[in-house]
Amino acid sequence: MTTNASNIEDQLVALAKVVEGISQHMLQQDNVIAKLLAKLDKPKPTSHNAPEAQDEAEASTDQRHGKEKMVGPMPFQTSSDSFIHLSQLDEYIKGALKREFEGSSKPKNIYAKPYTSRIDTLKMPLGYQPPKFQQFDGKGKPKQHVAHFMETCNNGGTYGDLLVNQFVRSLKGNGFDWYIKLEVGSIDSWEQLEYEFLNRFYSTKRTVSMTELTNTRQWKDEPTIDYINRWRSLSLNCKNRLSEASGIEMCVQGMQWGLKCILQGIRTRTFEELATRANDLELSIASSGMYGPPVQESSKAKRYERYDAAKKGNNAPIKSFGKEALAIKANDQSTSEDPK
């Protein structure tokens, strides 16, 4: 749409030039005809009317200079009454338009700027020095690149449409290939270029759901610091915003059993504090010879252990009052009452 409007404007400008040239030529012809008619009404020039001859010579000179100033050649052949034929005028207009468009058109293999002449003629501030931009190669986060580019330009004193002809300095690889393939003269504002860029390149960052964040667990043999950093990175990409206190609580829930039991009883305010305490606890467990989190012993295993001890004649106290303990006690009584 922008290109079609630009072509129409160029055609109107060229046609205006042609009409202006024709008008100048017709005006000059009228002046010449008027002087010739005035000359016929007067007697032949003598020595005392030399100024009139000089005026006629100046008129002829002006006519020649006027033809040189007009756009293109004027191969008009006037009739005996000094009128120009319409066919000649039509051919002249067509030829002028053809020369105008042939001169402005360029081969496809020659690079042409994708922005309009208005953008190209904008002047940079006095003493402006191009800053060093971060390069975008088609990967990464395009919105972050645009934000960084705009801030860099603003700090250098350039704003608005002045950013258009600087944007190419921040592109490389696939980003630069996209830029040079833009249609010639299709960009007329920074907002338009920004829209085209963000429409072509989009972020591939994955959004993390609350369910995934809640089900994240510490891997086997994964250091606690690495787990906290991994969980924290996932939480930053979560579509739901969490307070730091809620995030710490969810992160502790995903830790290994031993650390989780200890850290749940400690009030932690920041992730930095959580990482410090978790690391200290992990080092303490490793130094004590426990290479894994403590495992809670089942009550059933404890009862069988006490049963075996009592059967061997061990006098260890039996704290369990289950069926196994009652059976052991009954056997002990019957043995003591049996006569030998």
Rank of each mutant, 00 (worst) to 15 (best):
T116Q: 07
L236M: 11
V13S: 15
I93Y: 06
Y115H: 14
R230Y: 10
W178L: 01
A310M: 04
N109K: 08
T276H: 15
T3R: 10
E222N: 03
W219L: 11
H85A: 14
N229T: 06
L15N: 08
T270N: 08
E9Q: 05
A53I: 09
Y195F: 14
D30H: 10
T78K: 11
Y159P: 07
I8K: 13
R241P: 08
K205M: 06
P51I: 00
Q144F: 07
T78L: 15
D55E: 11
R267S: 13
E194T: 14
N174W: 06
Q166P: 07
E305K: 15
V168C: 12
D177V: 03
V184R: 15
D41G: 13
L40W: 01
H65A: 05
N109H: 13
I22A: 06
P51N: 05
K260C: 07
L198C: 06
S336L: 09
E100H: 15
K139P: 00
A34D: 07
A53C: 11
G313E: 03
S288C: 12
S23C: 02
A301E: 08
Q333E: 10
M70Q: 11
A147Q: 15
V208G: 01
Q144D: 13
L326G: 00
Q77P: 00
L89C: 07
S79Q: 02
G292N: 05
Q218R: 15
P131C: 07
G140C: 06
A112E: 14
T121D: 02
Q63V: 00
F133W: 02
S233A: 13
M26E: 07
K139A: 04
V295I: 14
G66Q: 04
P130E: 14
F201V: 00
N31K: 08
Q135W: 06
F176P: 06
G21K: 03
P339G: 00
K172Y: 04
L281R: 07
